[in-house]
Amino acid sequence: MRALMPRTLVAVTMVAFVSSSILPAVAQAGIISTASTFGFDTQEARSANLAKVQAQLARAEVQKSLAAYGVTPEQVQARVAALTDREIGSLAQRIDQAPAGADGGILAVIGIVFVVLLILDYIGVIHIFTHRR
């Protein structure tokens, strides 16, 4: 309980700060969104408001990451807007390790194998390439 006090204080400050700066209209902030009712334990002490603030911060973080990975500024907005707070939350925590389906790895492996074979062939360990002399 004692540990909770400063966190609550920080949360309240953040709510005040964020709702006055990022959220478009304070008056519209009252509605409880459908998405926020999923994925929580009803007994969870953390309030929905705090979760909302954390989601705002995580969103900014993910936007920064996408931009750093080379996404154009106009796409960053739209891409992040298509994700739920939960999705943003888990991306913010581990976007660097999140799987990025690429297939680049397979090409890299093939490339390395090819170079190794070429070297072995060149120094005479194996003979698989046709040499013209």
């Binding site: 990975y69 080379g70 996404v71 891409r79 999705e87 389906g101 680049g104």
Partner: peptide
Amino acid sequence: VPQVYLPGRRGSLQAELVGSARR
């Protein structure tokens, strides 16, 4: 590509495929 590809990761994230489907 502009909706899901991450040049810096040379790939796409699962969450972004989800987001793009919604779009």
